[in-house]
């Protein structure tokens, strides 16, 4: 059993991560009147034209698709904020700036469905791409520090980043743990010297002798 790796690899698919991100709330300005929605995921509204309100992204996108609202991009998605983040990311070799846990998915959803609501959309988009690249480069360098002495690894990253490096990190740590585990070493020694026939492939070994 030891050599088996998990065939699933990624625990969550990209679509599932997007699904999770769609529950984050966002401010919208509706242009219709609609009563309060009492949904399973919470109560939202009432909706009145020109009055901003907070809704989950899936709801915002659904209204946007029908032309019933404009989405107000979150503060962190402004050129000014993103430029700061990018500079800070570049300045520090190891630490990561605080971005929303789902920043990749949220920005992607807004680029896909609400381009016209984002000021300087091209600039914002390229800044986010740059931030993503810089962070991934740092993650790659950070992973080189993984060693047999790592019992826990702090990964204050976003959902997508965590998901991408998950198979490597968990697999690597697990292998180091296995190799460094004194019980394991003793057990394999015991199996080798003390009970040659008792092990699972007993009969075959007898044949070979």
């Amino acid at each position: 059993m030891s050599g088996q790796s998990d065939p699933r690899g990624f625990t969550f698919s990209a679509a599932e991560l997007e699904f999770l991100a769609e529950d984050e709330t966002m401010e919208i300005v509706p242009n219709l009147s609609m009563e309060r929605l009492s949904l399973i995921s919470g109560d939202f509204g009432p909706f009145r034209p020109q009055i901003a309100t907070q809704v989950p992204i899936w709801l915002a996108v659904a209204l946007k698709k029908r032309g019933k609202c404009t989405i107000r991009p979150p503060d962190w998605m402004s050129v000014e904020k993103l430029t700061q983040v990018l500079e800070a990311e570049r300045d520090s070799a190891s630490s990561f700036e605080a971005l929303p846990f789902h920043y990749v998915e949220i920005s992607r959803l807004l680029f896909d469905h609400a381009r016209d609501d984002i000021p300087d959309v091209y600039m914002v988009r390229s800044l986010i791409e740059d931030i993503k690249d810089v962070r991934f480069h740092k993650i790659g360098t950070g992973l080189e520090k993984l060693s047999s002495r790592t019992y826990a690894m702090k990964l204050n990253l976003s959902a997508m980043e965590v998901n991408v490096i998950r198979p490597f990190v968990t697999g690597g740590l697990e292998t180091f743990y296995k190799l460094g585990n004194p019980d394991m070493i003793q057990e394999s020694e015991r199996q080798e010297y003390r009970r040659p026939q008792a092990a699972d492939r007993g009969p075959r070994r007898e044949l070979r002798r």
Partner: peptide, 20 residues
């Protein structure tokens, strides 16, 4: 770390860790 060595972690709200 249960393999002898004491190696406590300070975990704050929202921290993300890879752990056994």
């Amino acid at each position: 770390d249960d393999s002898g060595e004491e190696n406590p972690l300070d975990m704050y709200a929202g921290d993300i860790y890879a752990l056994r």
